[in-house]
Design a protein around this nucleic acid. Structure first.
Lengths: 339, 339
DNA sequence: ATGAAAGCGCTAACAG
DNA sequence: CTGTTAGCGCTTTCAT
């Protein structure tokens, strides 16, 4: 018998009865203590303590309508890029004494929808989401119903939705230019499905740069679609690259986790980096510079991204704004070699 | 004028009016569609659609009492160890069609308390928490009020609370034995405050092993307390270690993020690893084996940890159980050198 | 300073 | 099969 039978939670009227006051007074003690005489206040507080009373948030909210909570949905909580963004959000929300509910859609639209619904049902102030689909109609609907919506890591395709993003085309283009400058004429791109906007944009950026430099993307670029945007995906993708008849001399990865898998696979196959295969990542996560072969990567202002998103969410005037940050290529040995 | 004035959310009675039925019927089509004739059901559904009606979760919950949502509070969402655990939780919860609300306490008891309160107020089924304090009385209180509580990464000190943990003493002891085997007689330990249980336990494990091997911890061990358990903390700690009069020959880090900072600092100071300083991490995160100097680290079954925690949370019999997993030392070059 | 009472949106009896 | 109604726990006028 290790469990105490959990008796019903004490309610405000239990407290009122015990303190011999009305429920209104208990409510006042809770919300406007100064409207209550010290003596009764003490009595009520004692009763609250005695009964281990915790106000029922649902009831409170049902009356109040909204709460100081915001929701965020990212594609994958175990991807450092997203968690750094989440930190940025949290830090900004904390300033305003808001709390963050974080969830991950796992890139699945159904999961995204489910969390969205959960958040809405519970009356969050607003929601920041990295959409799992190119389509954002469901988010516009949400917005029309009065929820604050901020698209994360994705420029809004419509002017009714705020967004905070990084210019992915520019980031990928910078990486491509860097590789071509280095003499690479055949580049593999380990990318996710184009239904994920970052993936589509980075692909487009690569194309842009190649064309601009006078190369034919159809020849110079081999895009390989991987199922999961993590180290396992990178490994699988790299195995495919290595099996290619005309092997590329450089591999661009859609993120650093993927690059990690690529690096691992290349090492296992005894392909030297960068002489046998140059590798570029994306995100410049904490460990990128500390790897066996320090990774050239596209740095994104993750923390700022989250911070700004929360800023928009909290904006008193509810302005709608599309913010775009510029990424920055960080060159390291995985493309330039030692020295 | 980009913003549509967000009019009041439609309620069930708005739907009822529009569909010319009673609220009870609307509720029925929502919850027991078969109790309603197809014709009226259609009419109600149309009205729901028309008004973009979303049931108010607070009201529903106020009636129902509880929801299929669980909360988790970890110390830091941007630490891969915790996010891997979170993934394990999510994966298990999803099987049961539950949703996860994730929050991070940032090691601050006030933040932990705030989220706990938020979760409780919103009637979550239960909560999984990596406690920010050694004291768990507040969690017992929660439990007594009927919430499921599972301690994460921390054995329960009381038999009324379930817990899922990894034997930290054993993990740290294994690392220490490895170091002593290698001939190290003076070891620095970059650790967090002992108020965090993992930190206290790992310190104890180190002591245990040293004593067992005939060394005097007072001489062989220099414990340095770092403020933040991440790369920055590791950097600051390592700077202190390097300034020590009698410099240790090995540094044990409380986690891999800290080790990352240590490695970075050693490199900047031109101290070779492991010949000038051996380094051991903890957690064996994804990138540990891929670093410039692959990191010897203590592997924990993170995903399992989360999975099992969620298992206990969902247990139909509400059993109370303390689960302990064993960690495993993964030896790499940061202690043994090349080859 | 305190109490009484209405009502937030919903579900679950209970009638019909 | 559908309507009516009593609360769930709380906040908030409005009286006193």
């Amino acid at each position: 018998m290790t469990t105490t039978a959990p008796r019903r939670r004490a309610s405000i009227s239990d407290v009122a009865r015990q303190a011999k006051v009305s429920v209104g007074t208990v409510s006042n003690v809770l919300n406007r203590p100064d409207r209550v005489s010290p003596a009764t206040r003490e009595r009520v507080l004692a009763a609250i303590d005695d009964l281990a009373f915790v106000p029922n948030g649902s009831a409170r909210q049902l009356r109040a309508g909204t709460i100081t909570t915001a929701g965020a949905i990212v594609l994958d909580v175990s991807n450092p890029f997203f968690t750094d963004v989440a930190r940025g959000i949290e830090d900004r929300l904390e300033e305003a004494d808001y709390t963050l509910m974080l969830a991950s859609s796992d890139e699945k639209p159904e999961r995204e929808a489910r969390y969205l619904r959960l958040f809405e049902e519970h009356g969050v102030q607003g929601v920041m989401v990295v959409p799992a689909t190119p389509d954002v109609e469901h988010l516009e609907t949400l917005r029309a119903r009065g929820l604050r919506v901020v698209l994360l890591d994705r420029p809004s395709p419509v002017d009714t939705l705020s967004s905070v993003a990084v210019d992915d085309r520019a980031g990928a283009a910078a990486a491509a230019r860097h590789l071509v400058d280095l003499g690479h004429e055949r580049i593999a791109f380990l990318n996710g499905p184009h239904t994920i906007r970052q993936c589509a944009d980075r692909s487009a950026g690569l194309h842009d740069a190649l064309v601009e430099l006078g190369l034919d993307p159809a020849e110079a670029l081999v895009e390989i679609t991987i199922a999961t945007l993590n180290a396992d995906g990178g490994q699988a993708g790299t195995e495919q690259v290595l099996a290619l008849a005309q092997r590329p001399t450089a591999t661009m990865c859609v993120n650093d986790l993927t690059a990690l898998g690529a690096l691992r696979t290349l090492r296992a196959a005894d392909v030297p980096v960068p002489s046998g295969m140059a590798v570029v990542g994306y995100d410049d996560v904490t460990f990128a510079g500390e790897l066996a072969t320090p990774l050239t990567s596209v740095r994104q202002p993750t923390h700022q991204l989250g911070h700004r998103a929360a800023d928009l969410l909290l904006d008193p005037d509810d302005v709608v704004e599309q913010v775009t940050f510029q990424p920055e290529l960080v060159v390291r040995e995985s493309t330039t070699g030692v020295g």
